[in-house]
Write a protein that binds this DNA or RNA. Sequence first.
DNA 1: GATAGGGGTTCCAGTAAGTGGAGGGTCAAG
DNA 2: CTTGACCCTCCACTTACTGGAACCCCTATC
Lengths: 130, 130
Amino acid sequence: MNIGNVSNLSGLPVKTIRYYEDIGLVSPLRDSNGYRAFREKELHKLAFLGRARSLGFTIEDCRALLALYDDETRASADVKSIANEHLEQIETKISGLEAMRDTLSHLIHECAGDHRPDCPILKDLGAFKN
Amino acid sequence: MNIGNVSNLSGLPVKTIRYYEDIGLVSPLRDSNGYRAFREKELHKLAFLGRARSLGFTIEDCRALLALYDDETRASADVKSIANEHLEQIETKISGLEAMRDTLSHLIHECAGDHRPDCPILKDLGAFKN
DNA sequence: GATAGGGGTTCCAGTAAGTGGAGGGTCAAG
DNA sequence: CTTGACCCTCCACTTACTGGAACCCCTATC
């Protein structure tokens, strides 16, 4: 299977697939013309990667997960531990963003948003917070 | 005022302050020995930047906000519009992360997390989703 | 006067995860 | 035989810094 085909099936851009080969996440064979020749195995791995990335796992997480995916003797605890750590990071990120959102929406609410220069948003940003 | 001093007062790392000069966000004078000499004005700008960045504004947003901050004849509507757009992006990000969190925590819940290889997390990641 | 420390300076390289483009080879159809 | 859709490699760029090397400046101490 050629890269364009795999791209369609996996939903990953061609460029991304080449990049994943570059960093060693997949290792397709090559045809005599130099074209990448993907097997089912690689297609599955790429779909796996796409899904894992869409859940926000880092590439290094993906690498570890893929190794576990390949390893028939894995312990599910190892997978769960990676997922749990990632979940915590997501929750931390959400909290941070929610704090930003709350502050910002409060400031926006205060701002008249007209032709006048007075602006609580700028006033807040310009104030020292210690 | 030297850079270390400004760093302490603004809370920004020295490296970051130099970087902000590099990209034209602040323009401190120079002493005869080549040291940056910051005035009150720059200190305020740097504090402004730190605060704006902590609310998640991009550097380019900060550049625009700083220009409005400097402009006594600004319209608060311009500030509000930047802030509103940013707020929307934050909300989009939060939604995305919440979706990840929900999927992931569901999968984690399903996974036994023991020595056995069976793992709903890997199973889900490996499945094609169309 | 030499030296040690704690400032400061510049410039180069690297981070995460791709994306865009240049320049060029390959293949099937008309 | 040419056209258009593929494919290839390699390089540069993105965001917002961060780390490090190599070097200068200032003050205090031996």
